[in-house]
Amino acid sequence: MDQFNREEFDQLAAEWRYVITDLICRAGSGHIGGALSLVEVVLSLYYRNMKVDPKNPKWADRDRLVLSKGHAAPVLYVALAYKGYFPMSWLPTMNADGTKLPSHADGRTVPGVDMTTGSLGQGLSAACGMAMAAKTDGRTHNVFCIIGDGESNEGQNWEAAMFAAHNKLDNLVAITDCNQMQIDGTTQEIMCLEPLAQKWKGFGWEVLEMDGHDWDSINTTINQAVAVKGKPVMIIAHTIKGKGCTIIENTVESHNIKVPDQAAYDKYMNALTVSAKLPY
């Protein structure tokens, strides 16, 4: 695991936001809001919390990550490229014809993506299967799974919730990207999730909460989560949709942006709070 340096992490997070926005703008459209809300969480997982080896993406003892909200793939692709799973030159091909980096997280073509996702509600079940396999084989790695708060409308999550608690999958740590927005409006307007923490507790999970943009909060909470024994853990990560891109930050419209021309490209890139050099 990498040494934590607050300044470097801040710089990296800013750069990732710049790259994510560039990739989506180049592609002409994309799910930017839910990718930007996860930057610190995914960065922390890959640089601080998860046991991984980019040179050996299928290493049996690595920790796994299932990005169930597969539309946030740009943040995962950027993380994997920065960690060295594949060349940086792949990044600007996202969504181009014949790309290896399609809009939703794709384990078939992208080294380091542990499960193909994109149809909401399915990732937590797969993560349960992966955690179950580890238990069956007596292996000690952890399985992380990130779901969206909007995604939590899907009933399959709650089938998986029952299963994980019933089978005491304490090697499973789920994280809800709780930015309180979904496609058609706020989660409060469309389908109220609250009391979310109590729901997961009621399903037999340990529930923790964290500030999804604060390095210390993320690290402390994830460490606490992996130490829990006897039950799965849900971390509710309080995040801001579209964080870092001022014209869409904390708006429902940030879910998916259209970037038809250079003017739109400039508008979004100029709205980033920090600029950076593109690594490709």
Binding site: C128, M130, A133, G155
Partner: peptide, 21 residues
């Protein structure tokens, strides 16, 4: 036995298959 939850059964199956089961 996943209980009466076929969607979850398929997802768990997929996760197990990812791990070589």
């Amino acid at each position: 036995n996943v209980g009466v939850a076929e969607a979850n059964m398929i997802g768990i199956g997929a996760g197990l298959a990812v791990e070589g089961k």
